[in-house]
Computed example of a mutant assay.
Amino acid sequence: MTEHDDLIEIARTSINPHRVGGRLFGDVASALETTTGAIHVGVCIDTGSGTGFCAEHAAVASMVTSGEYAIARIVAVWRDDDERLTVLPPCGRCREFIRQIDPSNIDATIVLGQGRTAPLRTLLPEWAWPEPEPPRRRDTP
Rank of each mutant, 00 (worst) to 15 (best):
residue 1 M to I: 07
residue 1 M to E: 07
residue 2 T to F: 12
residue 2 T to M: 11
residue 2 T to L: 11
residue 2 T to K: 06
residue 3 E to V: 06
residue 4 H to T: 01
residue 5 D to T: 13
residue 5 D to R: 15
residue 6 D to K: 08
residue 8 I to C: 05
residue 8 I to L: 09
residue 12 R to W: 07
residue 13 T to K: 13
residue 13 T to A: 08
residue 14 S to N: 12
residue 15 I to V: 15
residue 15 I to N: 02
residue 17 P to W: 08
residue 18 H to W: 12
residue 18 H to V: 12
residue 18 H to N: 13
residue 19 R to A: 14
residue 19 R to M: 12
residue 20 V to W: 01
residue 20 V to A: 13
residue 22 G to K: 13
residue 23 R to Q: 13
residue 23 R to Y: 14
residue 25 F to K: 00
residue 28 V to I: 15
residue 28 V to G: 03
residue 29 A to F: 00
residue 29 A to Y: 01
residue 31 A to I: 05
residue 33 E to Y: 02
residue 35 T to Y: 00
residue 35 T to H: 04
residue 35 T to F: 04
residue 35 T to P: 01
residue 36 T to Y: 05
residue 37 G to A: 07
residue 37 G to K: 04
residue 38 A to C: 11
residue 39 I to R: 09
residue 40 H to G: 03
residue 41 V to N: 04
residue 42 G to T: 07
residue 42 G to S: 10
residue 43 V to C: 09
residue 43 V to T: 14
residue 44 C to L: 08
residue 44 C to N: 13
residue 46 D to I: 06
residue 46 D to A: 12
residue 47 T to E: 05
residue 49 S to L: 11
residue 51 T to M: 10
residue 56 E to D: 10
residue 56 E to T: 09
residue 56 E to L: 08
residue 57 H to T: 14
residue 57 H to L: 09
residue 57 H to S: 11
residue 58 A to C: 05
residue 58 A to N: 02
residue 60 V to R: 00
residue 62 S to N: 13
residue 62 S to A: 15
residue 62 S to E: 15
residue 63 M to K: 02
residue 63 M to E: 10
residue 64 V to R: 15
residue 68 E to Q: 15
residue 70 A to T: 10
residue 71 I to D: 02
residue 74 I to T: 00
residue 74 I to F: 01
residue 74 I to Q: 00
residue 74 I to A: 01
residue 75 V to L: 03
residue 76 A to S: 15
residue 77 V to P: 01
residue 79 R to W: 06
residue 80 D to H: 06
residue 80 D to V: 04
residue 80 D to A: 04
residue 81 D to P: 06
residue 81 D to I: 07
residue 84 R to C: 09
residue 84 R to G: 02
residue 86 T to G: 03
residue 86 T to I: 06
residue 88 L to A: 03
residue 88 L to V: 03
residue 90 P to W: 02
residue 90 P to S: 06
residue 91 C to Y: 08
residue 92 G to V: 08
residue 92 G to D: 11
residue 93 R to L: 13
residue 94 C to R: 00
residue 95 R to A: 06
residue 96 E to I: 02
residue 96 E to W: 06
residue 98 I to Y: 06
residue 98 I to D: 02
residue 102 D to F: 09
residue 103 P to K: 15
residue 104 S to R: 15
residue 105 N to Q: 12
residue 106 I to W: 06
residue 106 I to H: 10
residue 107 D to N: 15
residue 110 I to K: 07
residue 110 I to M: 12
residue 110 I to Q: 03
residue 112 L to H: 01
residue 114 Q to R: 12
residue 116 R to A: 14
residue 119 P to C: 14
residue 120 L to R: 04
residue 120 L to S: 03
residue 121 R to G: 02
residue 121 R to L: 02
residue 123 L to G: 07
residue 127 W to S: 14
residue 130 P to K: 14
residue 131 E to F: 07
residue 132 P to Y: 00
residue 133 E to M: 05
residue 134 P to N: 00
residue 134 P to L: 03
residue 135 P to D: 11
residue 136 R to P: 02
residue 137 R to M: 13
residue 137 R to G: 09
residue 138 R to N: 11
